[in-house]
Amino acid sequence: MGSDLTRYLRVEKLPHIWCAGCGHGIVTQAIVRAIDELGLDPVKVTIVSGIGCSSRAPGYMNFDTLHTTHGRAIAFATGVKLARPELKVIVITGDGDAAAIGGNHLIHAARRNIDLTVICYNNTVYGMTSGQYSPVTPLGSFASTAPYGMVERPFDLCELVMGAGGTFVARSTTYHARHLTNVIKQAIQHKGFSFVDAFSQCPTYFGRRNNMRDALAMLNWYKENAVSRDDWAKIPPTQRGSKFPIGVFKDEEAPEYCESYRKVIEKAMKEGDAK
């Protein structure tokens, strides 16, 4: 512990643009701490993001960083990874970015099992545009475009990615910062498509509209409602209420896309030589 993480940051670009009490700094710290603890060569790490509050994180991170268009980070990252499979490619995205406008890219990257690590800074709201509901905003909660309460059913992003074929899926929260760091480490080490649903508080645009006045109230909410995967399984579905599971939900091995495609290249080149 106690490693100087500032060498992974573009300190001169600080202060960041996030609001006071925002959870995104905690998730960003967890990512660089995971990179540090894994001893990755920073030159061989590329971080790709889309649009939204979360997607500003790479600007502060001292790697090759690519801040793309709304929802498209995973598709850009697919190009980077296929062009240079030796790079560790980490995608930083938000719930609107990944699950609404970029939902198609998320499920297809999971299906291909391409070796990307996607960290979703999930604050259940569009923060950059000041508080509209997203595909994960809980039923009944309020947003600037859900003034009478949310009536759309939310996605569980972990279930979505597992259903689409992602081979490593985990969830944690900014309250569980150490746990979050650990699951990010596992995700980065995983060979294949890995997804971390990182709950991150937005007191400014979500908390204040939903009876959680500040960051502390929201962190307390995470503390009180997060349960381990095993404990979650023991609670009868009717009694789960606002509780949600954290932990690693899936960790499986399956053929990774870049490796599969490398075999295609070998086959094509061999057949080409034979001619």
């Binding site: 793309t68 598709a75 850009f76 697919t78 190009g79 296929l82 297809h108 495609y261 290249i265």
Partner: peptide, 21 residues
């Protein structure tokens, strides 16, 4: 490397990513 992406938008995105790499 060839890849058939999930849509037109994604294929243009992947092209940008590969070029930067």
């Amino acid at each position: 490397t060839f890849i058939q992406m999930e849509d037109e938008i994604a294929s243009m995105a992947a092209v940008c990513g590969a070029s930067l790499a």
